[in-house]
Design a protein around this nucleic acid. Structure first.
Lengths: 346, 346
DNA sequence: GCTAGTGTTTGAAATGTTTCAGACGCCGTA
DNA sequence: TACGGCGTCTGAAACATTTCAAACACTAGC
């Protein structure tokens, strides 16, 4: 591990240093890195030896500046505290890895202003593409990014207008199968727990539930909507308290929660207050995160293909970035119900 | 929103375009961005107007190339599926935000080879600093990064040798208070569930547990070590099965799990097989992730100050990167026991 | 011995910024 | 009138890489 050639004082070595050490020109060193097939194997080895000897590490900013193309994707997720989005991110990362791209993970925490800041940064970095689960899919900032030639793929949402690829799950259908399952189990008074309404997923899951309810001719009043301020465990708990506070003859025998975090909170509150699940209250969640199956009463949930969602989104993005014949595509996945103990027949 | 000046055909505008549009020189535009106080307010406004008119967005690669300094930190986390690390990341992000830095989140998934790949990429990007929860804190790649002048802070681990800042929790102490709590509750046969041994946190938590056990003069055989292949929910479940398979008179009445994911798996398996927690088996976890409190039987756990851990680590990193008088520091936090229902007195 | 062709290497230009020494214009003072 | 000082602005150099037309060294064919 000796280093015979050491003319640089502290500076981190550049291609120029490597070229000097190997006795070739700048261009040749670059060729060794970018089109090794067109440099003679003997020189190539010489250059490679010089590289490891000097501990050369390519400067990505310079590469990107000159080549005009970046090697990183970014995913802006909606809520870092929800494992669902990490599973999506995991899927994205797998696809990025295959394409030898880096992935930049950011988090808007559900705030539109943070989202704008993140997008602005990403534009400055000239990332190759942006995947995003937006606070609001119609945000003009997204158009701005796209107009600048940076491909954008919307994840877990769809956008009616404008040229965007998107990957989503049919949330209305998801709401339908959740409710159908509960009705099948004999429930005729059901709560829908979820909010705020500004979140599209919540609106659509509720819509699907209502559709089924109406089609079966059940009284609208018996599908109770308990709104929440966020899709979190603690909001689920407090919804549980409100539920328990209802007069017994009005109280639902089942709850459909807009996501699993709410469902877990509800489950905890219900059991903690001495009631039984599913005997006193059946619960259906949404997303089927890993913790759903791992709950003390394993949770029935509407499964989204989380990782697949991410992988598909990344593939669409990469296609848009590299294939000039690309046409925008709205991929829709069909969710499926995973029945577990929390809705088992009594 | 008209755009009177439009001499660029599709190209994204550069400082040069802005300078031309505003009728000033390159240098002045740069000054507007980097030292606005030294340009006359009338010209400053003119330049700013030109910027918004053209939709100028600074090219970060060029900035970084010339200035030699990047504006992003990176966190390489050990296990993306463990919420603990996301809470740490959240803390880092807060501190990065304060310093107006971007955060690059990567994931080694516990594999040393992936970790090396990520670190290599980060060196290419010339990030300003790296925070990492390493697979192995003595990895030579970490020295390599550091030797290249990129500050490294080790998170949730310590490293004996070499100049690194680190931020960690006293895991031995954590193991001690977990065991003390169980002994206090009257348990005299306890299982330690966790593995693999290659993970330092596991070793130290077990060590703390053993210390207490020995100091109290309890028979070593009554502290049973059930090894696991990973720190996951499903490994926790399978450990639960092994536990249940022990002959009744040898079976522990309490379990201390190396992290909360294991504890949640164990909890689920125990309840699912008809036993009661804590009556038949008391459980203590480690980390105190949000799901611990939200479990159906709320989990007693050793709390790490997750977000604080991240924030402190980021502060140390930023200090190392910007303060020439920086001296390395090993910050150690003392964990505390949060007692909940899973160990309540019978 | 000349030519064409092939495979390899070279050198200069270009990318978009920041930096810094110096130029410029203006004012007040000697 | 000359001079220094001050506030503002300029222009060229530098950063580390990629790209590409052109140069070069050989070989084979005539």
């Amino acid at each position: 591990m000796t280093r015979p050639y050491q003319p640089l004082n502290g500076r981190t070595p550049s291609v120029k240093d490597v070229a000097a050490a190997a006795g070739v020109s700048l261009g040749t060193v670059s060729n060794v890195m970018n089109r090794p097939e067109m440099v003679a194997s003997v020189t190539r080895e010489r250059v490679e030896r010089a590289m490891t000897q000097l501990g050369f590490i390519r400067n990505e900013s310079a590469r990107q500046l000159r080549a005009g193309t970046s090697r990183t994707l970014a995913y802006v997720m909606l809520d870092g505290s929800n494992p669902f989005f990490h599973d999506v991110a995991q899927g994205i990362e797998l696809a990025a890895e295959d394409a030898d791209l880096s992935l930049f993970i950011c988090n808007s925490n559900g705030r539109a202003d943070r989202e704008d800041v993140q997008l602005d940064r990403l534009m400055q970095q000239r990332v190759q593409g942006v995947l995003i689960t937006p606070v609001n899919p119609d945000s003009p900032t997204l158009d701005e990014v796209s107009r600048r030639g940076i491909p954008v793929v919307i994840v877990d949402r769809v956008r009616e207008t404008g040229g965007f690829c998107s990957v989503a799950v049919d949330d209305v259908f998801g709401g339908r199968i959740a409710l159908e399952h509960l009705v099948e189990k004999g429930h005729t008074r059901v709560a829908f727990i979820g909010g705020p309404d500004s979140i599209g997923q919540v609106r659509e899951r509720l819509q699907g539930a209502r559709e089924v309810w109406d089609e079966l001719g059940l009284p609208a009043d018996d599908l109770v909507h308990l709104p929440t301020a966020a899709l979190t465990v603690s909001e689920g708990r407090s919804a549980g308290e409100r539920l328990a506070g209802l007069p017994a003859r009005r109280r639902p025998t089942a709850a459909f929660c807009a996501n699993d975090l709410l469902a877990l909170g509800l489950l905890q509150q219900t059991i903690g207050s001495g009631q039984r699940v599913p005997e006193d209250l059946a619960i259906v969640g949404f997303d089927d995160i890993d913790f759903a199956a791992a709950a003390a009463v394993p949770l029935t949930s509407v499964r989204q293909p989380r990782q697949e969602l991410g992988r598909t989104a990344a593939r669409l993005l990469i296609d848009e970035a590299t294939n000039p014949m690309h046409v925008h595509e709205q991929a829709t996945f069909i969710p499926e119900l995973v029945a577990r103990a929390s809705t088992a027949t009594r």
